[in-house]
């Protein structure tokens, strides 16, 4: 998947504003960003259901704006809504949609993979949110896709259902499926993705494996202490010198309230998102 300079405007406002993205075969890539950052619009353009205004896009070797059924057969989508008639049972839905694929995964295998065997005879209208998502996953991978899109797959799920869901993604990856997912949960991106792309203000502001995210920002250590009753704070890439000076200046050999912290992934994320979105909004006004 190869994206350069992607732009999408709604009523003159650029929701996606020059986004570049590469996703490699067989990896799990997470687009991470706050609501309204342009994640869903981006993924819909990549799925070939929304037209872009500018930029080049290649997905599975083709331009998603001009694709046919053979291309669609190679990709799967786990959408946000249930997208299935309420009056049918899970098994009826899976059996029906099997007819849209050349070589569908057997319904029994799908039910087992997503843990819905006991709910096979239940009508869709009676499923819980977590069960609906699992059915959506089953439908998304039914046609043995090479590439799977998941748009905020765990939003609204309870913690247990989320973890079960994560296992499904890991299983997909183990099968060699390329996965592109969007999320606004940092832990989800860190947990699942080989690489994370942070989207803010319609641009990709950072791409890295989860533990390298933030690069330089992450090296900046914060040293805090109390001096004369007032809190003091210093940011430094090499805090050793700061600490040496503090200790040397101290009469008692102790520094009250001393803490030395490295930024968490969350701190880095918030700074990246904040740094990217603030000037963008400024430009618009």
């Amino acid at each position: 998947m190869h994206v350069r300079g992607l732009v999408k405007r709604y009523g003159g406002r650029a929701v996606v504003d020059g986004l570049d993205l590469d996703v490699h075969h067989g990896e799990v890539f997470a687009l991470l960003g706050p609501n309204g950052a342009g994640k869903t619009t981006t993924i819909e353009i990549l799925e070939g259901v929304r037209q872009r205004d500018e930029g080049t896009v290649r997905v599975l070797g083709e331009d998603p704006a001009r694709v046919g059924r053979p291309w669609r057969a190679r990709m799967g989508v786990v959408s946000q809504g249930e997208g299935a008639p309420q009056a049918l049972t899970v098994r009826e839905i899976l059996d029906h949609f099997a007819g849209y694929h050349a070589t569908p995964r057997p319904t029994g295998d799908l039910l087992a993979a997503v843990g819905l065997e006991e709910k096979a005879g239940t009508r869709v209208g009676r499923l819980s949110g977590g069960q609906l998502r699992r059915m959506a996953v089953a439908l998304g991978v039914q046609g043995r896709p090479e590439l799977v899109f998941l748009d905020e797959p765990t939003t609204g799920l309870d913690p247990v259902a989320r973890r079960q869901f994560w296992q499904l993604i890991r299983d997909l990856r183990a099968d060699g499926t390329t996965v592109l997912l969007t999320t606004h949960y940092l832990d989800e991106a860190a947990e699942l993705a080989d690489r994370v792309g942070i989207v803010a203000g319609g641009r990709l502001v950072e791409v890295a494996p989860p533990d390298e995210l933030g690069g330089q920002l992450r090296l900046v250590t914060t040293v805090r202490w109390t001096e004369g009753g007032a809190a003091r704070e210093v940011h430094a890439e090499a805090p050793g010198a700061v600490l040496r000076d503090l200790l040397a200046a101290s009469v008692t050999g102790d520094v009250p309230g001393l803490t030395v912290t490295r930024p968490s992934l969350e701190d880095v994320y918030l700074r990246l998102v904040g740094a990217a979105s603030t000037p963008t909004e400024g430009e618009l006004r």
């Binding site: 959408s79 997208g83 949609f97 849209y100």
Partner: peptide, 16 residues
């Protein structure tokens, strides 16, 4: 069906 996203699924499946 359009409002409940059922048609969206059909589109993603490339349904003629």
């Amino acid at each position: 069906e359009r409002e409940t996203g059922q048609l969206e699924r059909l589109q993603l499946l490339g349904t003629p």
